[in-house]
C-alpha cells in the first residue's frame, strides 16, 4: 500500500451556475483521446473505428456517435479525430482506445488537456455571440458540428451537442480565465 495517496482534482472544481435562461457547468468524468490516421491507412482506420467503437469516421468539422463507450467522435483535423467517451477508469483512457483501434491509429490521451464546460439554455447563442466569432446559427452550425476556434485569446473546441447546448473545451491551464470569459458573456446578456 502506497504511503502517499493521490486524489485527482477537476479543473474547475465542479463549477455549475445558472444565470437566467442559461446554465453553465463544468463537465467531468469524460475521457478524451486523440487518434491520428497513419499515412495511407484511411481504410484500415475506418475499419478499426467501425469494429472497435461502432462508429464511422467523422469529416473534419463534424462529429458522429459511436455504439460503444457512449463515444462521440470529433473530426478535428484532416488526419486526426478526438474521441470523447465514458471511461470508468480514467487512468486507462488511452489504453481503452488503443485496444479498440489496434495498430491502425496513433492515440494520445487528451483528457486532462482540456477543461470542459457545457453552456445550455435559451440564451446560449446570445451569450456566445460575445466571445465566439463562429456563426452558430442552426444552418451554419447544426447539432453535431464541431470546430476549434479562438475566444478571448484562448483555444476553444466548440461542439454543438443539443438544440440549445454547446460543449466547450479549452486548455486546462487557462481554464479559470476561460470560465470567467464565458461567465461574463452570460452575465452581460442575461435578463
Amino acid at each position: 500500500m502506497a504511503e502517499f495517496a493521490l486524489a485527482p482534482r477537476s479543473t474547475l472544481g465542479g463549477y455549475a451556475e445558472t444565470f437566467g435562461s442559461v446554465t453553465l457547468a463544468e463537465v467531468t468524468g469524460l475521457a478524451l483521446v486523440s487518434a491520428a490516421v497513419p499515412n495511407g491507412g484511411d481504410d484500415a482506420f475506418a475499419a478499426a473505428l467501425a469494429e472497435g467503437l461502432g462508429a464511422a469516421r467523422p469529416a473534419t468539422g463534424d462529429s458522429v456517435a459511436g455504439d460503444r463507450y457512449g463515444a462521440r467522435l470529433l473530426g478535428m483535423q484532416p488526419d486526426q479525430i478526438f474521441i470523447l467517451f465514458e471511461e470508468p477508469d480514467p487512468n486507462r483512457a488511452a489504453e481503452t482506445v488503443a485496444d479498440a483501434l489496434g495498430p491502425d491509429a496513433y492515440v494520445t490521451d487528451q483528457s486532462d488537456s482540456w477543461a470542459m464546460l457545457r453552456i445550455a439554455g435559451a440564451g446560449v447563442r446570445a451569450a456566445l455571440e460575445r466571445i465566439c466569432m463562429l456563426d452558430l446559427d442552426d444552418a451554419a452550425f447544426p447539432e453535431g458540428r464541431v470546430a476549434r476556434t479562438v475566444m478571448e485569446h484562448l483555444a476553444v473546441i466548440v461542439l454543438r451537442d443539443g438544440a440549445d447546448s454547446f460543449l466547450l473545451m479549452s486548455p486546462r491551464s487557462s481554464a479559470r480565465s476561460f470560465l470567467h470569459a464565458v461567465a461574463v458573456s452570460v452575465e452581460n446578456t442575461a435578463g
Binding site: 499515412n39 494520445t108 487528451q110
Partner: peptide, 14 residues
C-alpha cells in the same frame, strides 16, 4: 508530407 508522422500538443496533459 510523405513521412508518416503525427503531432499533438501534450503540454496541458501532463
Amino acid at each position: 508530407p510523405g513521412l508518416d508522422v503525427h503531432l499533438i500538443s501534450a503540454t496541458e496533459q501532463w
